[in-house]
Structure formats: C-alpha cells, structure tokens
C-alpha cells in the first residue's frame, strides 16, 4: 500500500471516529460502505492503522467489551486527533497522481462531520489553478520535449479540476447519500 493511500486511510478512520466511537470491526464496515467501493480494507490494515493512530495519541481506547470471541476495544478520537483531522481537511493538496483517493476521502469526511466541503473544494481549486499558472509560465522557457511533459501534467491537473467542479455541484445529494 502506497504512502498516499496509507495516510488517506488513517484520516478516513479518524473521520469515522470523529462521527462516533467505534470498534475495529465496525470501522471496517463503515469504511467499506463509505469509501471503499472498489478497494475494501483488510482487517489487518484496520488494526495496524488503529495501533499507529493510538501510538501517535490521535485516538484512545474508550472501553473494552467482551464479545463472542476476543475482547473488543472501542476507540474514540482524542483532542489531538480532531486537531490533526482539521489540519488535514483544511490544507489543499499539491496536484499529484493518485490524488483522487485523497480528494474524494476529504469530501466524504468533511460531509460526514458536518464541516464545509465547499470551502475545501474551492481552496483546492485555487491550489490547482496556481500550479497550472506556474507550469504554463515554465513551459514558455522550456524546450519542446520538456514542454510536452509539462503539457502532460497540465492535462492531468485539468482533469482533477473538472472533477472538483463536478463534485462541487453535487455536494448536497452526496451529503444525503453518505449519511444513510
């Protein structure tokens, strides 16, 4: 699993814990339903991620309950966890390949927690436009070969932007759907 996906999964789980305290099993089910249509989480990933988040002080064990099998830990987000989640949500991402997972996760986490996805998408849009402006400037001085590589980046960033525009127009419907 790449670092981008690993980070994104961490924040998705933090987002779910920001909504309510949950057990590991419950977290996996909620994640798969909201984020994982094509890539469900394995249990091993869930517990590894929870252990890491707990070590970093972003979540804590809120209670231990006996289940049919082993005891089940119920996790809750800590104050540091909320701060970290909010920082992640409010910082636009630099354009990069594989960004769709991160952008999509941010939109869903924002909507789940009643935060503004509009503001996040608009700031992300500005970041993308600023990068396109820089690349267009660089292309002016570049050789044709380098210019064509820059074109490749520009077309990909433009595709991200089209998704951002499209998503911004569908936030209300999405907000209703993911709360089901």
């Amino acid at each position: 699993m790449g670092i981008v996906r690993r980070m994104t999964v961490s924040y998705a789980l933090l987002g779910l814990l920001n909504e309510a305290d949950r057990h590991g099993y419950d977290l996996k089910q909620s994640y798969d339903r909201r984020f994982g249509a094509t890539r469900p989480l394995r249990f091993g990933q869930v517990y590894r991620t929870l252990a890491q988040l707990e070590r970093d002080g972003l979540i804590a064990v809120a209670g231990v309950e006996p289940g049919a099998g082993p005891e089940r830990k119920r996790y809750s987000i800590t104050t540091d966890g909320v701060t970290d989640l909010e920082r992640w949500l409010s910082e636009p991402e630099d354009p990069q390949p594989q960004l769709q997972t991160v952008l999509f996760t941010k939109v869903v986490v924002a909507l789940l927690s009643g935060r503004s996805a509009d503001v996040f998408l608009e700031e992300q849009r500005q970041r993308h436009l600023a990068v396109m402006r820089d690349l267009t400037r660089q292309r002016r001085e570049a050789s044709l070969r380098d210019g064509m590589l820059i074109d490749y980046q520009l077309f990909h960033i433009e595709a991200d932007l089209r998704w951002i525009e499209h998503a911004a127009g569908r936030l209300d419907t999405l907000a209703e759907e993911i709360k089901l």
Binding site: L129, R133, T136, F155, I157, E158, L161
Partner: peptide, 14 residues
Amino acid sequence: HEPRVAAFADRQLT
C-alpha cells in the same frame, strides 16, 4: 471556462 486557458493569466477570478 477552460483552466488551461486561464493558466496563461496573472490572476484568476471565478
């Protein structure tokens, strides 16, 4: 309405 065209500008207003 095209970001690639807008990227030629010094500044963008939406």
